[in-house]
């Protein structure tokens, strides 16, 4: 019917396309246009061409923040999905507590990032609960100024991120587990595969679709991280936790230096990075799915 009446098809698609153009394409184009101006704020600006993009290449703060962001994303994606997978498997193997467990592990995800940051700020303070616990366990030598040391601050934030979203990853993997063909699991048991062997030979390959979703979503989320470093360290100490989103924030809302357009330029860079990284990752993981 629709193939015979293309205008009907267009009419059905028009609202969705219009919404997409207005809500997605238009702001993107506006952002791109803004990045080619010298705007201090808003539309009062002159066209400067690619000057802002040229400045990016020599901006050591942006280059450093890019490195911090990528390092953070790599660690978070691997650790968050590993923990999520372990949690999902534990719940899959224990049907009695599965429902309650899957609800409980999602609780940190439901917490606002700002609230989680404040709670962990307090736990990670020099006289906070974590150092107090280490002392109580006789491990006083391991106490540390977690958020004040550049060698630990970023990873302390990553731990909070993993704590928040491992349950989310677990929910994705658990959904994957629930879709595993029961006969395959049974057959592997009959063949004597159990534990680690069953996981590597049967479960892990069959969880490929869940892995694609989990890795892609956590990659996008961690590349765009903002609230946690903003509240927990304000990008410090000495810029060691300054992510690209924080540089964008300072440029756009920093005031006085007219960095609004430059902030938009960095935002375009971040968008490209997220699209490229997520696109490549997804393509590789999809190819893996097809191979399996």
């Amino acid at each position: 019917m629709i193939t015979r009446r293309p205008l009907v098809a267009v009419a059905f698609m028009a609202p969705a396309v219009a919404l997409y153009l207005i809500l997605v394409v238009y702001p993107l184009v506006q952002g791109l246009i803004l990045s080619t101006t010298d705007s201090k704020i808003g539309n009062a600006a002159d066209f400067v061409g690619l000057k802002n993009y040229a400045a990016l290449a020599n901006d050591s703060d942006v280059i450093r923040a890019l490195g911090v962001t990528i390092a953070y994303a790599v660690v978070v994606v691997i650790a968050q999905n590993a923990v999520g997978l372990a949690l999902a498997r534990a719940l899959f193997m224990r049907p009695r507590i599965r429902q309650l467990g899957s609800t409980l592990i999602l609780l940190p995800t439901l917490m606002s990032a700002v609230m989680a940051a404040f709670v962990w700020n307090s736990l990670l303070a020099p006289d906070g609960a974590i150092n107090a616990l280490l002392k109580a366990l006789g491990l006083g030598t391991l106490t540390h100024v977690w958020l004040g040391d550049p060698s630990t601050a970023l990873w302390a934030i990553a731990v909070v991120n993993i704590w928040m979203f491992a349950g989310y990853s677990a929910a994705i993997f658990l959904a994957g587990y629930m879709n595993l063909p029961a006969e395959l699991i049974d057959a592997s048991s009959v063949d004597g595969a159990s534990g680690w062997r069953r996981f590597t030979a049967v479960e892990w390959p069959l969880l490929a679709p869940a892995t694609t979703v989990g890795v892609t979503l956590s990659l996008i989320g961690s590349l765009k991280v903002f609230e946690l470093p903003f509240v927990m360290t304000n990008g410090g100490p000495a810029g060691s936790t300054t992510t690209l989103t924080m540089v964008i924030y300072v440029k756009i809302f920093g005031g006085g230096h007219g960095g609004f357009a430059y902030g938009a330029t960095i935002a375009v860079l971040l968008l490209v990075i997220v699209v490229v990284f997520a696109g490549v990752t997804q393509a590789l993981l999809r190819r893996r799915e097809e191979r399996i």
Binding site: V145, L147, D149
Partner: peptide
């Protein structure tokens, strides 16, 4: 000074 970097 290093310890002070850990206090909000």
């Amino acid at each position: 000074l290093k310890s002070e970097l850990g206090v909000d």
